[in-house]
Design a binder for these strands. Structure first.
Length: 828
DNA sequence: AGCACGCCGACT
DNA sequence: GTCGGCGTGCTC
């Protein structure tokens, strides 16, 4: 059993006894330190000239440096084993008033549920740049006396520093570059060639910019030149206040005109904070609420009945007008003087939904928050959200941490989407669960919207007044008919194209009717590998056990092979490295392949590509979708992101190149994912005045899930799927926890994981959980790390008793990394 | 995380 | 003998 020096922070959902965020601290303060592997609280003294409140972000001396930490608890007397002389002073308060009680409790709850140190949860919630730690920096002196007798390490460091304009590098960087760096540094410091010092990295701060403000509205023509008067009038027309740079570029005036106006006391020039927000957007066209369908009316009425916590499921088929329901419920919340959080699963859906909200509420009430914001934008947005004014935040999963003090509602659109689950850095939270906890704590309603609800949500809401259904599309538009094409028969009939005869004729029809179509590709790594047709050799990543993906040459002559796991890139070999064959080519049906094939078979159709390769640049998402919506192309070819919530009224054809990749996903969710994805993709079709048509190609046309998809029949899918889950105690009946281990040392991971497996199995009978594994991860090696995993399965209702995670952590040597993924979605 | 202290192999 | 590898322990 691991013994901790001081009492660890209890991982409980309620705050520590006596804890209340914002209360001033008397006595000593216990600080949660921002250093991984340091979980205990450290006690500090508060200097007289400093006011520290619980929840403040502090900078404190730790070891020989300054680190940031959070003031979490005040104590009146010191622990016995801690000598007064060892206590240091708090260095400074970095930020105050960021957390409210409820918010703080939420963070505790997350830390507890996901078995993650609280500090990591806080880091996930805060914008970057608030927590920071000092860095040791090495600087070359101005006039160093350098003699030749230096050691090689010292010489190398010197060279490095001399190559830098300011003669400065972080110590960490030098250590990475130079071996024996420590000795070299000592030499250089002893001879007074360099100095070292600790410096806090540049913290995120407000951006100041010169602004011009009218201070005298009365224009005395005799006093002003013509040009001065013009500029002043323009400024006045624009509300009397503008950024200097903008006013100058608008009026083409020179700065001296403003100086003169300031001199004559008509305007004042001053530095003001320029709030950085993501204002990238289209045109606003104010819209009033449209006529509601009776289903929409019913849902809104039901939602309006409560202001307390309540989880609603808004189950609406694609195109049934869920967004309008969101708009109306948010409208009510704003009128009550409260704020709203609206989450979407993907960054690509933000422009579209933001446009809808802006058209209804105007732009100043809406902020967006997602991973593509710059650090400055995030920082400013986050601070703006701390204010009490009613506002709307629209964002991806991390926006669930928006610090809005006055929450009136939380909405998750496409709530079934697995992008709501974080699986990379801990905490591996699911935004839907966090949203529910938060709504409970803030006592506000939670609305989960989907055409294909997650089974968890279905179980929780079915047969309850909180189940709100929109079974029909708006304006009584029909759901598109879905045709499943058996690709085996295509082959028998001699069609070797990747497009079935049915899809080909639909594409031809599209050409004639001037309508638009979408081709969906389910891409998952293996679909774009390069292989030898003579010997079957496949190019694999040297660091991961996966094949490399082919990428179309851009402007460069050589095509590139890239690893989707570690980003390793290499040029494509001209011939097979194994057998020298020249039949060595890109194989598979990725987006590019489909584009080529279209260009070949349907040269007159204009195609646009829409996948993560093309949309990674900022604003590219919107650009492509706008181009497509404006009819600049006939076909949009893309992956996953096409399936999610896009509203493109001109689309009358949706083609799924192959459903097989989806059907054969090797985890218990395969059927659910297939049903969701296919239903969602099909839903992109026939949303305008013209009816649509969906064609799904597969080698497995008999698959039962496809029948449910054809019938747009969620209930029949559920009826088939739930018993299967129940039988094996999979979610939503049972719960899963995935332990992942990884290490560069293969033998060591196997050994460690097996040891953990034995421990878990030994106490599994008493614990009432099931142990699956140890097994290698689906891809055993990624970035030269060997990965293993153990899955725990248990049924909450039957009572359970999970193992002691501290014991398991203790079983891992430092070279083996352990992560605990609660409710895992990805078994990669 | 860093960094110090501390114990074992190949070299001036 | 020393330099230098990286294994444990500590930081209020």
């Amino acid at each position: 059993m691991l013994e901790l020096a001081s009492p660890p922070l209890p991982l409980v959902a309620e705050p520590i006894a006596g804890y209340a965020v914002g209360t001033k601290v008397n006595g000593w303060i216990e600080v949660l330190i921002d250093i991984p592997g340091v979980q205990e609280l450290y006690t500090y003294n508060i200097p007289i000239d400093l006011t520290v409140r619980l929840g403040d972000i502090l900078s404190v001396p730790f070891s020989d440096r300054l680190v940031s930490g959070i003031a979490v608890r005040s104590i009146a007397s010191l622990p016995e084993n801690l000598d007064r002389s060892r206590i240091k002073n708090v260095d400074d308060v970095i930020a105050s008033g960021l957390f409210r009680d409820r918010y703080w409790e939420l963070l505790f709850k997350i830390a507890e549920y996901y078995h993650t140190p609280l500090i990591q949860v806080i880091k996930a919630a805060l914008p970057p740049g608030i927590l920071a730690r000092s860095q040791l920096r090495i600087r070359l002196l101005d006039t160093p006396t350098i003699d030749k007798s230096l050691g090689t390490a010292a010489k190398e460091i010197l060279q490095l520093l001399q190559s830098q304009k300011d003669g400065e590098y972080s110590w960490r960087f030098i250590q990475q570059k130079v071996r024996g760096a420590r000795r070299g540094l000592k030499e250089l410091i002893d001879r007074q060639i360099v100095v070292s010092n600790f410096a806090m990295p540049r913290l995120q701060s407000v951006k100041l910019q010169m602004a011009v403000t009218v201070i005298n509205d009365f224009i005395d023509a005799s006093e002003l030149s013509e040009r001065q008067r013009q500029v002043l009038e323009i400024l006045r027309d624009r509300g009397g206040e503008m950024w200097k740079a903008e006013l100058l570029s608008l009026t083409k005036a020179s700065a001296s005109i403003l100086d003169k106006l300031a001199e004559k006391n008509y305007v004042s020039l001053s530095m003001q904070e320029r709030i950085r927000l993501d204002r990238e957007r289209g045109i606003t066209n104010p819209q009033t609420a449209p006529q509601l369908t009776s289903d929409q009316r019913g849902a809104i009425d039901e939602l309006n009945r409560t202001d307390r916590f309540c989880q609603f499921l808004l189950h609406g088929v694609t195109g049934s007008g869920k967004t309008e329901v969101y708009l109306q419920i948010v409208d009510r919340v704003l009128r009550q003087g409260k704020s709203a959080i609206v989450l979407v699963p993907e960054i690509g859906l933000i422009p579209q939904i933001t446009d809808r909200f802006r058209d209804r509420f105007g732009e100043d009430k809406i902020c967006v928050y997602h991973s593509a914001l710059s650090d400055g934008e995030r920082y400013d947005t986050w601070r703006l959200l701390l204010s009490d004014t009613p506002q709307i935040i629209i964002g991806t999963r991390s926006a669930i941490f928006s610090p809005l003090p006055n929450l009136g509602i939380i909405i998750l659109d496409e709530e079934h989407d697995s992008s709501y689950k974080q699986d990379r850095p801990a905490p591996t939270y699911h935004a839907r669960d966090v949203a529910r906890w938060r709504a409970e704590l803030e006592a506000c309603p939670l609305v989960l919207g989907s055409a294909t609800p997650a089974l968890e949500t279905w179980i929780a809401n079915a047969n309850s007044p909180t189940y709100l259904s929109l079974p029909n599309r708006i304006e009584s538009r029909p759901l598109p008919p879905i045709e499943v094409v058996d690709m085996r028969q295509e082959l028998t009939a001699g069609n070797r194209s990747m497009f079935s005869r049915s899809l080909q004729s639909a594409l031809r029809e599209l050409q004639q009717t001037k309508k638009q179509g979408i081709l969906f590709i389910h891409r998952r790594g293996h679909s774009s590998f390069v292989s030898c047709r003579s010997c079957g050799y496949v190019v694999e990543c040297p660091h991961c056990d996966v094949s490399l993906a082919y990428h179309q040459p851009g402007t460069a002559a050589d095509s590139l092979l890239r690893c989707h796991y570690c980003n390793h890139a290499q040029p494509q070999p001209k011939k097979c490295p194994q057998c020298d064959s020249h039949y060595f080519k890109f194989f598979g049906s990725g987006t590019q392949k489909v584009m080529e094939e279209l260009a070949h078979q349907f040269p007159s159709l204009r195609c646009l590509r829409f996948d993560s390769d093309v949309t990674s640049r900022k604003g590219e998402h919107r650009r492509i979708l706008t181009a497509f919506a404006q009819g600049e192309a006939d076909i949009l070819v893309g992956t996953q992101m096409l399936a999610k919530g896009l509203d493109l009224p001109q689309v009358t054809l949706v083609g799924v190149i192959s459903a097989d990749g989806l059907l054969h996903l090797s985890d218990y969710r395969a059927a659910e994912r297939t049903f969701q994805t296919l239903t969602q993709v099909a839903g992109r079709c026939g949303r305008g005045a013209d009816a649509g048509k969906v064609i799904v190609q597969t080698y497995n046309p008999e698959h039962p899930v496809l029948n449910a998809v054809i019938g747009h029949d969620y209930r029949s899918f559920i009826a088939g799927e739930l018993p299967a889950r129940q039988l094996l105690n999979y979610p939503p009946y049972g719960k899963l926890i995935l332990l992942r281990t990884s290490s560069p040392d293969e033998k060591l991971v196997i050994e460690t994981t097996e040891k953990i497996g034995v421990y878990l199995t030994e106490r599994s009978i008493a614990g009432k959980y099931e142990v699956l594994g140890p097994a290698t991860a689906t891809v055993m090696r990624v970035s030269d790390l060997y990965r293993w995993q153990i899955l725990l399965k248990y049924v909450p209702n039957l009572g359970f008793n999970l193992p002691d995670w501290e014991v398991i952590k203790g079983m891992c040597p430092s070279a083996v990394k352990l992560t605990i993924d609660v409710d895992p979605q990805n078994f990669l």
